Structure formats: structure tokens, C-alpha cells
Amino acid sequence: MFNFHYRLERNAIGFVLAIILVASIGGFIEIAPLFTIDETVEKAPDMRVYTPLEVAGRNIYMREGCYACHSQMIRTLRDEVERYGPYSLAVESQYDHPMLWGSKRTGPDLARVGGKYSDAWMTAHLNNPRDVVPESNMPAFRWLLRNTLKTSDLGEHLATLRTVGVPYTDEMIANASNDALGQANPDSNLAAGVTERYGEKTNISLFDGNPGAVTEMDALVAYLQVLGRLTDAAHKSAQNEVE
């Protein structure tokens, strides 16, 4: 076997053909499931899209590298399901571009962190993790409270996501900036429009506790609070399995 490998390395053409063959096999294994994507992704009639504020928060989440230490993929292993909740379904990430499932965990999985902690806890944790979790080795993101969120280009973000299949309407795109401001200001006149366009279950809150401005902290907390809550499909699937 080893002699064959040595001989193959000395034959340039044969070695190139072997590389192409192996790469083709790997590529086919990766691509083949896409032909059955309609059968793979579960149906979730209650699935909603991310609001503009949540989209902005997701962009900040990626910008700060949060995905490098936190996965968003609960596997079917018993210990993971008991710790984090129902295992992740493909439908829950159908509007994620790029998808952030991952498997590297320096910190806990965040697939179902939405609603687990209050907005105040989330803000305190992001501002200085040691204030709420003394043993945490997570870095502090204090600048999020200081940085005013840029909302003027959120319509363009939504329009771009629509080109890859996310069903944003023209109305959603046109009102993206106002909806971001309204979701972080529950007492403003803009809040009603958010509920009208994204549903009654949309989380409208003073996320960072500061009514004076919409910050990057508002956006990131809004995104974290919706993780695992865009649809109830996983919980229904878990309940059906028990029954």
C-alpha cells in the first residue's frame, strides 16, 4: 500500500487524477443532499423573518466573532437536549445567511437562549461578563453601549437578503429604519408598525435600558432574545416524539 503511494507521488499525472477523484467524491457527498432539500427542511407555518433590528444584531454578532466561541446547534445527544432544549431543526435556520450552526464551544450553545435571561441580564453580561458570571472568560463588549446603531442602510440589508430567498416585502424594506427604531422604543409611535409587519409575538423592548438612543447593544440583545423563538417547530417535534 505504501509503495503504491510512493509510486503515485512520482507520477504527476496520476497524482493529479487521484486528487480530482477524491475531491469529486467529497464534493458529491456535500452537494447531493441539496437535491433533497425540500424533503430535509421541515414545514413551519409560524416561522417569521428577522426584524431589521435583529438583522443588525446578527451582523454585530458576526462582526464581533461571537460565533467562534458559541455554537447555535443543539445535537440529538441526550445530554445536550437536557441542557439546552430540543435539538436544532433545519427550518429554524432557513433565513440565516450565512448559517451559524457550528460545533466549537468555548461558551454555551445559544440556539435557544432567547427568553432565558432578561434584557437587563443580557446587557450586563455583554458589558462585563464577570458582573453576572464571575468565572466567565468571555471578553467585555463595553463599546456596544456607546455605539449608536446605524439604521439608514437596513433597508438595503433586507433587500439583499430577499435576493437569496428571505421573504421580505417591499413594505418591510421601505420601513426598515423606522422599524429598527420602533422595536427598541416600545413607547414610540413607530412600535405599532413593527408588530403589524412582523407579528404580535415580536419582542419590542427597551433592550439596553436607555431610552435616549438606539445602540448596538439594543440590536445584539434583540438578536439574542429571538434565538430559538422564530418558530415553535422544534418544541412541537419534541412533543410529538414523546407522545
Rank of each mutant, 00 (worst) to 15 (best):
Y223M: 11
L206F: 08
E171A: 15
V226E: 15
P186L: 01
A192G: 15
H235P: 03
D187I: 00
T195E: 10
G228D: 04
R162A: 09
K201I: 08
A219Q: 13
N189H: 03
T163G: 05
L224V: 05
R197I: 04
T231H: 02
D232C: 02
L206W: 11
D218W: 07
N189G: 12
T231A: 08
R229S: 08
P167K: 07
V221W: 11
G209V: 09
R162W: 02
L181Y: 03
S177G: 06
Y198L: 07
E196Y: 12
G212Y: 14
N210G: 06
T215C: 14
R197M: 09
L206N: 13
G165H: 00
K201D: 12
P211G: 03
A180D: 10
T231Y: 06
T163V: 02
L227A: 06
E171H: 06
L206I: 04
T195R: 14
L181V: 02
L224H: 10
Q225T: 06
L220A: 06
A192D: 14
Y168D: 05
S205G: 06
A222P: 08
Q183C: 00
V194P: 05
A191I: 01
V166L: 00
Q225K: 13
V226G: 09
G209N: 11
P167R: 08
L224D: 11
L227I: 05
K201Y: 10
A234E: 08
D170R: 12
M172Q: 13
K201F: 08
N189L: 10
A219M: 12
T215K: 11
G193A: 06
V194G: 03
